[in-house]
Design a binder for these strands. Structure first.
Lengths: 239, 239
DNA sequence: GATGAAAACATGTATATACATTATAGCCAT
DNA sequence: ATGGCTATAATGTATATACATGTTTTCATC
């Protein structure tokens, strides 16, 4: 498991400090040596010590305060990194042929629910798409998407019958923030029918809200059959 | 949404390059200026340009190759950061009193299933705990945990009747890697009874495997009522 | 022309240095 | 005491420099 070679100076120091923190030798709240002292202890320059401490801080293992020093952070949360892939990629990595079917695509004024889902304030026009992603001819997941036409007016002219809106949006619309929400739900009769699974089967639901510089871009809800899909995340302190 | 002040030199440059990449002005595969050229364009030193490019590379937005230069990466995946909190913290942040009940705690030789769950190779002794976390007196989530006694021998003497094994492990055992697996499942009759939910209700299952320097440390499966719990992850390119 | 050595090149890492920023401690006058 | 000033200490950022590392290109030799 531990395949790091720690070949560079600062990665050796980083590993050493990480070990001290993670082993509890330096408990939460402990003040670690100042940059100059670390530099002296390891026989390196302050810049190198700074780089190490900066990375530890970015990784959330320590907290830095001017004048006071650097402290081991209280372990409030494990932050795991979740790679959320494009669905076509996901399907193809299972060695299954990918397919896509657009069920509906309508333009309308944003309802109150639309506004809530996209965290829209002003209202305006939205595009709503319902689609099914297929793997090996069978339903793989459902997509329910709202696109804010105020920030993505060019989406109105697009034909989403062949290419999923996700691919279009990823390649054409700049965005700078996203939020994911992962839940388990019981399949409604409609969802069960579309996914060709048993009624009341468990489904994994991933909702994503995306923002660009000009406000909300899109909201999308993916619904996967629960017994056929899992999200995997990994965590390595300090990366 | 965009609350960044970009006050330092390299964060301004970083923001500028990010904008160019995310807006599509520099498409995937595009070779960005060399460090020396960037330094010249922005009137800064090569070290500053290097820092910016290094951060972009860490964030996965670009890929760097010696001699060849730095290239905008193909957007293979959105990497979202998921903060997985301690359950007691999670419950208290809902303003509910936290409770905990240990249902079973047995020591045994690792079965084949135990080995598979923990990715153990050699076998050996394990500790298995079944517990319920309560919020406001009602079941909040189930915990099913295996502890590898080969790497955590001191767990055998612990009394997990009061404090959950997770708290003990987090505070006492060093670990350096973890993997999370998130799924939706249909509640079995036993699970439904323990969580006091309807039979066949959807549940969110989070499994975590943890490794230390000496091999697997623990495996834990948390089962939440699907309609009462969600995981939230956020993503900001470049952080 | 093929092969391999050498030069050129871009990034990777580390150092010494400088100055900016900011929180703390101590001091001084009221 | 107390309010506010200043000195100080630690981190934050940036620069110039140096050498290491790994690729690609060039070029001399066989």
């Amino acid at each position: 498991m531990n395949m790091e070679k720690e070949k560079t100076l600062h990665s050796r120091i980083l590993g050493d400090l990480e070990r001290r923190i993670l082993s509890g030798e330096w408990p939460p709240g402990y003040r670690l040596p100042f940059e100059v002292d670390l530099a002296a202890q390891y026989g390196c320059s302050r810049m190198t010590a700074n780089k190490v401490l900066t990375q530890l801080a970015r990784g959330g293992l320590i907290e830095r305060r001017k004048k006071s020093g650097s402290f081991v952070a209280q372990p409030v949360a494990q932050s795991a990194v979740l790679d959320i892939h494009d669905i076509e990629t996901e399907v193809r990595s299972l060695n299954l042929p990918y397919g896509y079917r657009l069920d509906a695509c309508t333009r309308r004024s944003a309802t109150r629910q639309d506004c809530a889902l996209m965290e829209l304030t002003g209202g305006g026009a939205v595009l709503e798409c319902l689609a099914v992603h297929l793997a090996g001819g069978r339903p793989f997941c459902l997509e329910h998407r709202l696109i804010n036409l105020a920030t993505v007016p060019e989406a109105e002219g697009e034909d989403f019958g062949r290419t999923p809106p996700g691919a279009f949006l990823i390649s054409r619309v700049p965005w700078n923030a996203a939020e994911h929400r992962i839940q388990a739900v019981t399949a409604s009769p409609e969802v069960a029918a579309k996914l060709e699974i048993a009624r009341n089967a468990a489904c994994l639901v991933i909702e994503r809200r995306t923002w660009g510089a000009d406000g909300p871009v899109t909201f999308v809800r993916f619904t996967y059959p629960g017994d056929r899909h899992a999200l995997v995340a990994r965590f390595q302190p300090g990366g």
